[in-house]
Design a protein around this nucleic acid. Structure first.
Length: 486
RNA sequence: GGCGACGUGGCCAAGUGGGAAGGCAGAGGACUGCAAAUCCUUUAUCGGCGGUUCAAAUCCGCCCGUCGCCUCCA
């Protein structure tokens, strides 16, 4: 099956054909670093990380770039408010970004370029635009001339006339056309600035992505991603700058994720209804947040509230429980000689289930990264695995080879591609005391088992209920009691 | 004003012409000392009206409702 990708540029699904046979270049717009990231920032991080993981899983070599916009009006304003140095402020939130990204299981990009570290390339690009007659300087500012770029508006599906009708662009006497946008801005006294042919200044908002994309990935890249609200003007302007400079197509596939909403309203900084990832992570593990973000197709909106995360946590538990059962079955290790495969109906069905799960998952992901459908394939597989184990535990068939295959498939799909199966890192927060907790639990469970043997249910339940209150759950399985931290 | 998206069971969510996936919640059953986990069974004429078609959640038109972009925003 061919891979299909929805391309904002053509407003439809297309066959995915990268510029080189087995290599994919990806650029994803990263945050402007003036605050901790919020859930709205987290969606593209998780979505494009998953796309990257999937492409790698099916054999592409992916080069992944995510920038930091570390100089910008908002950073300057925020720093001024706090009486801080804007560079230090940006640096801090870059560090904090990595902290949150790790919790969300977002892999490091191959490159995390920063605007302030690529100033030469940006200035060069502005010079190029002026030389090509696509930009003009007015008293230290440089503006892109949208009328010089014939296909301006092709990404957002707007014509220059449509945009004028909007009339929401402020008239600026310096600009030839209200839609022209700054590629370089003169710095005021006391603001950060870099020397340039037009005096001391700093880059406009859109130019950094064009410049860094070209620098790190070349003039034509395969995938450029970001939130849907970046389509206009950010990405439209990136195209104009890049293509006016290189005279080549800038991006093959533009991919945009839908919004996070709260009470059906867009979560955004201006509305003030945003939730910091940091705050959410106090209540839910990163994998749950990640699973939540992947449980809906990336182009649809997702409405956020704690109840929905709770529901997702339960769904994820089902997957984790199944995986744990599989590992337990393998750990028991009392396999008969498996040289000759038994050929029971159970086993035949199980083998088919393993194959079907992999196929369904891959086909779902190949159809415009349909993670919701891919996850459904995982749930189907959970049921198949549980059914097999259910029967197997009764002593019918324990087939090491196929149990291992099933386990490996879980690891490939859930952990490597979706990034949701990692073991809880709560143990690490307990630090050195983790071993002690284990020993104490062993002791408690032993006491409880003795009570149960004596049918002293009161003592047994006191222990169990007390532990539940501490967030520890006990399960009495045929293999003895198990415990889990929640 | 211009452009666009969405409306599927109690909740979430796939599905773009021919069987209405999956999860959560609920009900009944098996297992269990009771639970938990797991298994089995069970819950939908797809916002409304009209049209095209042998056949529509899926295509077309109108209406109702919700949201987004056009301004910083993932």
């Amino acid at each position: 099956m061919k891979m299909k990708v929805f391309n904002t540029l053509t407003d439809g699904k297309e066959d995915f054909i990268p510029h080189k046979d087995k290599e994919v270049t990806m650029y994803v717009c990263g945050p402007t670093t003036y605050n901790y990231i919020h859930l709205g920032n987290a969606r593209p991080m998780v979505v494009f990380d998953t796309i990257r993981r999937f492409l790698e899983y099916i054999g592409y070599k992916v080069t992944y770039v995510q920038n930091f916009t570390d100089i910008d009006d908002k950073i300057i304003d925020r720093a001024a408010e706090k009486g801080q140095d804007p560079f230090k402020l940006a640096e801090k939130y870059i560090d904090e970004y990595f902290h949150d990204a790790e919790k969300l299981k977002v892999k490091m990009a191959d490159f995390h370029p920063r605007v302030t570290q690529n100033m030469n390339e940006i200035i060069e690009m502005v010079q190029n635009l002026i030389a090509n007659g696509c930009a003009y300087e007015v008293s230290g500012d440089v503006y892109f001339d949208v009328s010089s770029f014939k296909t301006y508006g092709k990404l957002s599906g707007r014509s220059l006339d449509d945009l004028k009708c909007g009339a929401r662009v402020e008239i600026d006497a310096k600009k030839n056309n209200p839609l022209d946008f700054a590629v370089w801005k003169a710095s005021k006294e006391g603001e950060p600035g870099w020397e340039s042919p037009w005096g001391r200044g700093r880059p406009g908002w859109h130019i950094e992505c064009s410049a860094m994309s070209i620098k790190y990935l070349g003039t034509e890249i395969d995938i450029h991603g970001g939130g849907y609200d970046l389509v206009f003007p950010h990405h439209e302007n990136e195209i104009a700058q890049a293509e006016a400079c290189t005279r080549k197509p800038f991006v093959r596939y533009w991919i945009h994720n839908g919004f996070i909403t709260v009470n059906e309203e867009k979560m955004s900084k201006s509305l003030g209804n945003f939730f910091l990832v940091r705050e959410i992570l106090k209540k839910f593990p990163g994998e749950v947040v990640r699973f939540f973000l992947l449980s809906t197709h990336y182009r649809s909106p997702i409405d956020f509230d704690d109840q929905k995360l709770n529901t997702c946590a339960k769904g994820l538990d089902r997957i984790k429980n199944t995986f744990a059962s599989l590992e337990e079955a393998l750990a028991q290790g009392n396999f008969e000689n498996n040289d000759e495969e038994s050929n029971t109906a159970d086993l035949r069905e199980f083998k088919q289930a393993i194959e079907a799960a992999g196929d369904k998952f891959i086909n779902a992901m190949k159809d415009d990264f349909n993670t919701a459908l891919a996850i459904a394939a995982i749930f189907d597989f959970c049921k198949d695995v549980n059914t097999f184990l259910h029967n197997g535990i009764k002593g019918i068939a324990k087939e090491k080879k196929h149990l291992e295959k099933a386990r490996d498939l879980f690891i490939d799909l859930c952990e490597d591609v979706l990034g949701i199966l990692f073991s809880d890192d709560q143990g690490s927060s307990a630090g050195d005391s983790y071993g002690l907790v284990n020993d104490l639990m062993e002791l408690l469970l032993e006491i409880r088992e003795r009570a149960r043997e004596n049918k002293d249910w009161g003592t047994a339940d006191t222990i169990r209920d007390g532990l539940v209150e501490m967030g520890i759950e006990i399960k009495d399985t045929p293999q003895g009691p198990k415990w889990d931290l929640h």
